[in-house]
């Protein structure tokens, strides 16, 4: 084969670069579509709902009059349900992930479990709702409470947390584990002083992404019977009917943001659509700020973890 002349080399490069440019354009276009959709959605809700962005909207209960209706019980309900969800899902998910990565023997049983954790993540959320209705609401007698809802959503995001935990653990180099074991540490000491702290940024990211998913879930919450019209807040600790305790609120009826939105969109009066748009925007802000917190925490915690 003849060596290429300089002109031919330049022609080859030019053809290659043309493809570069074309792909860059196509990629940018695809990215723009995705971004535009979300920006348009948020902007649309913001504009439609803008007249409701007053303090009253956040501190009023639901009402039959659209202009007086607010999202107090919904956002408080969402936050409390998230709290229960996190308290239940994080210890369970982290412990399960840690066990699978650090303790479990590699055999067919663990393999089956691993495959089924991925399957759990694919179960439609309404099915979790049905399960929870049977188990939490009726069997355990938790009723249509914040506790039932929190536990239901905890089940829903458990696979997300387990997978995030395992991935975070797997990113820790074997030499760190060996370094710890080599001075005579037990497995638990290694987990306690090294694996869990070093995996924490990844675990937290998974937890928050899981919670961000849970906060928007509607179907399972409706299934277990969240109320759509609720004009009171769960009792503040030690203030309910005697004997009042710290955790009375977990047994309280509740509503959450997505249900409030759903309720407003199904009203005939178009004035409620404004409420729905405003509440939708608030929900988006909640989700996005959770993601922002996740990004910040990951950045902050990873800064000190280098190998």
């Amino acid at each position: 084969m003849q060596p290429l002349t300089n002109e031919q080399i330049r022609a080859v490069i030019a053809r290659g670069k043309l493809k570069d440019t074309i792909f860059k354009g196509v990629g940018l276009f695809c990215l723009a579509i995705a971004l535009l959709v979300i920006v348009a959605l948020i902007a649309d809700m913001f504009m439609k709902g803008s007249e409701r962005f007053t303090l009253d909207f956040f501190i009023n209960f639901a009402s039959r009059r659209a202009t007086q209706a607010g999202i107090l019980s919904a956002w408080v309900g969402s936050l409390l349900v998230m709290l229960v969800t996190a308290l239940a899902a994080v210890p369970l998910g982290v412990a399960a992930g840690l066990y699978l990565e650090e303790y479990a023997k590699r055999n067919w049983l663990t393999h089956v479990i691993e495959v089924n954790i991925s399957n759990l993540a694919a179960v439609p959320s309404i099915v979790y709702g049905l399960l929870a209705l049977g188990i939490f609401v009726y069997q355990f007698g938790f009723g249509q409470s914040i506790l039932s809802a929190g536990l239901t959503l905890a089940l829903l995001i458990l696979p997300i947390i387990i997978v995030a935990t395992r991935e975070a653990i797997r990113a820790i180099p074997a030499m760190i584990r060996e370094g710890s074991m080599a001075v005579g540490a037990t497995r638990w000491q290694t987990c306690r002083y090294h694996i869990i702290p070093y995996a924490m940024p990844g675990i937290l990211t998974g937890v928050i992404i899981g919670l961000a998913r849970a906060i928007g879930e509607t179907a399972p919450i409706i299934t277990i019977g969240a109320l759509t019209f609720i004009a009171f807040l769960p009792p503040v600790p030690f203030t309910g009917e005697p004997p009042a305790g710290l955790f009375d609120w977990v047994m309280s009826p509740f509503t959450v943001m997505p249900i409030q939105i759903f309720n407003w969109t199904s009203r005939p009066d178009p004035a409620f659509e404004v409420n729905a748009a405003a509440a939708g925007f608030v929900l988006m802000v909640m989700v996005l700020s959770m993601n922002a917190v996740a990004i910040y925490l990951r950045y902050k915690m990873r800064k000190n973890i280098k190998w």
Binding site: P173, M175, I176, E178, G179, S180, M181, A182, V183, G184, A185, T186, Y193, H194, Y198, N304, I305, K306, W307
Partner: peptide
């Protein structure tokens, strides 16, 4: 093996300080 590792120390190929 933990008892063994308490008596026998090890230094690895690549420095592996904990973060």
């Amino acid at each position: 093996p933990i008892e063994v590792r308490m008596r026998v120390g090890m230094v690895f190929q690549k420095p592996n300080p904990f973060p």
